[in-house]
């Protein structure tokens, strides 16, 4: 028996919105410690790693480890049927063919059940090594989303250069070029508005806008985003999900021709 309940479906709705552009299918691995998803986009350029800890759920029970292959499009449609304040329960038997989503309104007067067929998927797990990154930047997630959107108008790639002075985003294309520099905030009263740079060595990396613009769909999950970068390795773009877990996106850099 697997059962996981969240008091408000809003978190799960936001998680689905944050992955639906990149993933068509994904395996949800459920164990005593929580739910984990690791999946690449179709082109194998990026990797999504989602972790929801069991102690972050209002109720969590997982008698046997389960790997449930889910169609992300269908799951997104089902989650859109829930109101943000509805309680959501995920339920499956030990060797499931289906998963059931149960939405209950706050006043308990409406109870909706949606059953979704699971799909068989080949599990292809990537081992992500522990990495000490040259630059780790924390910045407001809305600012990052804004910069990605704005610079995407100029080119199909964004170059991120980080030094101790700050972080610079730039894009160049046929119509011109653009760059946005952010300095580390000296003394921000509000933690969520801060730009913090932890730099060991300066880095300069170029990434496809298309993927960055998919990652920023996670913006509603967290006020801050953490970008971890080292030369010639994938960018890590991380959003905390309240007290329950995190979503990390890994993106392979562009390589100089």
């Amino acid at each position: 028996m697997f059962e996981a309940r969240l008091a408000q479906s809003a978190i799960l709705k936001k998680v689905l919105e944050a992955v639906k552009d990149l993933l068509t299918e994904a395996t949800f691995e459920c164990s005593d410690s929580g739910i984990q998803v690791q999946a690449m986009d179709n082109a194998h350029v990026s990797l999504v790693s989602l972790n929801l800890r069991s102690d972050g759920f209002d109720k969590y029970r997982c008698d046997r480890n389960l790997s449930m292959g889910m169609n992300i499009g269908t799951m997104t449609k089902i989650l859109r049927c829930a109101s943000s304040e509805d309680t959501v329960t995920l339920r499956a038997v030990d060797s499931p063919d289906n998963i059931i989503f149960i939405f209950e309104s706050q006043n308990k007067e409406k109870l909706a059940e949606y059953e979704m067929k699971l799909i068989n998927m080949d599990l292809e797990h990537l081992g992500i090594p522990e990495t000490m990154y040259s630059c780790v930047v924390k910045m407001p997630s809305q600012e990052f989303a804004r910069i990605c959107r704005d610079l995407s108008q100029f080119g199909e790639a964004i170059t991120i250069a980080c030094s101790k002075e700050g972080i610079k985003f730039s894009a160049a294309g046929d119509y011109g070029n653009a760059n946005v520099k952010l300095a580390q905030t000296a003394d921000s009263d509000k933690e969520e508005e801060a730009v913090l740079i932890d730099m060991q060595e300066p880095v300069k990396l170029t990434f496809a806008c298309r993927y960055l613009n998919s990652f920023v769909k996670a913006t509603p999950l967290c006020a801050q985003v953490k970008l971890s970068m080292s030369s010639d390795v994938p960018l890590v773009c991380e959003y905390q999900i309240g007290e329950i877990g995190h979503i990390r996106y890994y993106l392979a850099p562009k390589i100089d021709d």
């Binding site: 690449m40 082109a43 194998h44 350029v45 990026s46 990797l47 292809e124 797990h125 990537l126 081992g127 992500i128 090594p129 080119g155 199909e156 790639a157 160049a172 170029t206 496809a208 390795v233 994938p234 890994y250 993106l251 392979a252 850099p253 562009k254 390589i255 100089d256 021709d257």
Partner: peptide, 14 residues
């Protein structure tokens, strides 16, 4: 702006 790298060339398939 360069060739797009693949994520599975950076991480080992387990």
């Amino acid at each position: 702006t360069g060739t797009q790298g693949r994520i599975d060339s950076f991480f080992k398939v387990l």
